[in-house]
Structures are given as C-alpha cells and as structure tokens.
Amino acid sequence: MASIARCLRAARPSGLAALVKQPVPRLCSARTFSVSASNAIRKYTKEHEWIDLAADLKTGVVGISEYAAKALGDVVFVELPEEGKSVKAGDAIGAVESVKSAADINAPISCKITAVNTLLEEKPGTINQVPEDDSHGGGWIAKVQVEEQGVKDLEKLMDAEAYEEFTAAEGEH
C-alpha cells in the first residue's frame, strides 16, 4: 500500500522532506506508544495497513487504512491472503486492484493468516466504505494469529494519533 496512498498528488521522496522550504509542522513519532496488555491495540504501518491486536496478544485483525482507501479510488477486486500461511512483517499477503493498479497488501507484523474476509470477493467496494471496520460486514482483510515476534514487530508501528500526524505530514508535501 505504500505508493497508492500518495498517488493523488505529486509527492517527493521522503528523504527530501528536509529540503522542503515550507515548515513541516509535525513529525512522525512512531515510538511514543508502548504495548499494553489490558486493551485491544490498534496500530498502523507507514504503508497504511492497520492491525488490531487482541488484549491477549495472541490474535489480531488486519486491514488497510481509511486514508489509503480514499487514495486508492474504487476498489474493483481484492486478492485475499492465503489461509494458513505464515508471513513476516512486510511480506505481501494479498493485493487490491483499483484504477488499473494492483497494489500489494503487506503483513503489518509477523503472523499466521487464520481467516480471510470473503465478503470482499463479492463486494470489494466495502474497502472504500468501511476499511477500518473489523466486525462482520466490515472491510477488514484477514484474521491472524500472533506469536512473540509479531508482538515485537508491533513496537515499530504507529498508534492512531501518530498515524494521523504521519498522514497529515505526508499530505502537506
């Protein structure tokens, strides 16, 4: 999902952000959040996936962010992940097609795919309507099982507030 969220405007390589004349008011603060075992945790990747990790840190739900869904345009097909497959953080697990673009969906953390949202095969537009809904009828992509490495990977991701700042800063470029 890395590129698609940026496709509606002329963006610069992030490495050049420092050269931008106008001030960038907020910076990405990816590490201000610590994992709490008491509540379900939602985190986001820079590539615009989200993961909800259950309080027991064993199971989660994965999807793509509202910000990305908007930038994608009309989703016409979702290539769902393969059930039972174990993947590492960043691995491509599926893809969404919109406006002639096949965009990879990547695993936010190391995990094993336990279920996929078959509703999206029938109604791919659900991704545009409720991309961050992890309930029945929502636009979530896959349910996953998580082990130690996956929980560790979570530390590199952003919480909702940091992600909002990240996308706002991206949008200004």
């Binding site: 590129s3 940026r6 496709c7 509606l8 002329a10 963006a11 406006v99």
Partner: peptide, 10 residues
Amino acid sequence: VPPPIFTRTL
C-alpha cells in the same frame, strides 16, 4: 520508481 515519486499520470 520509489513510491514517493509515483503518481498515476507522471
């Protein structure tokens, strides 16, 4: 190209 450069029309 790297993703930050990409647009559909460029």
